[in-house]
Nucleic acid binder design. Structure first.
Lengths: 226, 226
DNA sequence: CGACCATTTGATATGGATCAAGCGATGTGG
DNA sequence: CCACATCGCTTGATCCATATCAAATGGTCG
């Protein structure tokens, strides 16, 4: 229980500039209301219990949300990849902390502006609701993962990552460390590592490097995924 | 893995009458749009993958939502007590099934009516969003529970139930069986039982009957709750 | 090249599952 | 009203998956 979750050292809160309103994706009014910020690897984006004044969208890189329990264990709530929105809580305060997994560009949007807009435009309101609904679904799937065996959890994680990877390519580029995966799945790094080598030996995956995973036999993984 | 989760036999889908629009609580427009139904113990309210045509509010009794995995394991997503709303998914289909834990009265509300209303009334839209947000929070707390030790999970469950019990009294009336608790916490009935007797021996709780739990030392439980 | 950090691999310990039996309450048929 | 079956719960004995402790390996950066 103590091997887990040493809180990673924090680097500078945000490393670069605040660009005014980049217009790279106008499919939603939200895009127009934010400014882009850059966060270095392991930089904190917000802390839990901070007022949830903003909401965020990953442009590039990857973000993790997490909570640290009293005894030091860390639970990762989710990983957010380009296109994903995070920090959208119903409450006035964040329930989790958020950090950049790797150097990341994040669109930061003032929550009050969005709420005002939603009050007038029911389409925006519905969009907000839908995003929260998807978060809920993800959390429920996370619950489902956590009752399974180590093999099933790791397989489930790989399948999820493969699904979300750009173009759903069969080679996954992992932004996160084994410790991150372990803290997401409620396992230890040793178990993650052992399970991956086991998958490799049974030819379900290949591991060109430790952060690159090639899915060789999706059916075998899905089967494990119970 | 096989001792868990035999799906309980289904009784009659709903046992009694459909009362037109009971006006017992008008604090929300939702109350006016539903009709009350009675479900017997273990009766199915809806099945997963059914179109989510309605949304529900517990009037009396208790409801569980759950999912059964391919191998027969059952995971309970949550328990809903009087006043709680359930079945509010962002998707067009239910992600979980729902059953009455004990004989229950449930207010059934047509989803399309609510959605129409929300499109016009931004207050209703926000209310819907808030309910989903609370569900999200609950699911996230559920995740947090599932990474903990058996003691911590059971203690967390008791504290949660005590908080939600009418008047937050120190004696909890459990509507659900040990199997339900086990499937909620990702443990076995044996572990639930052993943990409860352990709490009893350490004087943290008393067990007048198996379904009545008196909290004697909330601090001790909270401490376990990590 | 050397230091550091992430990952893998190995040996052992342990919490909770599994298998099994007993117990108490509730209900049913004789 | 009692005998007996049933069901939910508890308790005991043993096993096993994963944690823990420990060390080796490999990759990256100054």
């Amino acid at each position: 229980m103590l091997h887990q979750a040493q809180i990673p050292a924090r680097k500078s809160a945000f490393a670069l500039s605040i660009n005014p309103t980049p217009k790279q994706n106008l499919d939603s009014p939200l895009e127009m209301m934010g400014s882009q910020m850059r966060f270095g690897r392991n930089a904190e984006i917000y802390g839990e219990a901070e007022p949830a004044e903003y909401l965020y969208k990953v442009i590039s890189g990857a973000v993790r949300t997490y909570k640290v329990l009293a005894d030091g264990r860390r639970q990762i709530g989710g990983f957010y990849l380009p296109g994903d929105i995070f920090g959208l809580e119903a409450g006035a305060e964040h329930a989790f902390s958020a950090e950049a997994v790797s150097d990341s560009n994040v669109l930061v949007i003032k929550r009050s502006a969005v709420m005002d807009l939603a009050a007038r435009d029911s389409g925006v309101a519905q969009q907000l609701w839908t995003v929260t609904g998807h978060e809920l679904q993800r959390a429920q799937e996370h619950v489902l993962l956590l009752i399974k065996s180590a093999q099933e959890r790791v397989a489930g994680f790989l399948v999820e990552m493969a699904k979300r990877a750009p173009g759903a390519a069969s080679t996954i580029q992992l932004a996160m460390s084994r410790q991150d995966i372990a803290d997401y799945l409620g396992l230890t790094i040793e178990t993650i590592s052992r399970t991956l080598t086991q998958f490799e030996k049974s030819a379900a995956i290949a591991l060109p490097t430790s952060r690159q995973i090639e899915i060789r036999n999706r059916a075998a993984l899905a089967r494990l995924n119970s």
